[in-house]
């Protein structure tokens, strides 16, 4: 992983817990927002503008976020990464490179 020194945010091990918390909040926020959005749409479309679908959606989002976060904290050796499209393979399907999150050696 030495050549990857150019990567700007090479994470250091002592920052791991902070990063995990960040990820938790970001993920939970996304989930809650998604749940709220689905709840709003559902309440408008199916439930005659009742409010509970919204609460339910946000609850589901919160719960999903919590669960993800719990898993994250409970498995310290999981590596986090990105899929980066890298052209196409021989069968015309899009190919991806998996780039793990930079980690200090």
């Amino acid at each position: 992983m030495a050549p990857g020194a150019s990567a700007p945010a090479a994470s250091r091990s002592e920052d791991e817990v902070g990063q995990k918390i960040d990820r938790c909040f970001a993920d939970s926020l996304l989930k809650v927002t998604g749940g709220v959005a689905i709840g709003i749409v559902a309440s408008v479309a199916f439930f005659k503008s009742r409010s509970w679908p919204i609460w339910f959606g946000s609850g589901v989002g919160l719960g999903t976020g919590w669960s993800n976060c719990r898993h994250d904290f409970a498995s310290p050796y999981v590596l986090h990464g990105k899929r980066v499209p890298a052209g196409q393979d021989s069968q015309g399907k899009p190919a991806y490179n998996i780039i793990t999150e930079q980690h200090k050696q």
Partner: peptide, 22 residues
């Protein structure tokens, strides 16, 4: 960096190697 480590280390001092619940 050790200062940082010290702080985080104290906060997570009771967690074992395999992580823990929230």
């Amino acid at each position: 960096r050790f200062e940082q480590l010290y702080k985080i280390g104290r906060k997570t001092a009771s967690i074992d190697e395999n992580g823990g619940t929230l």
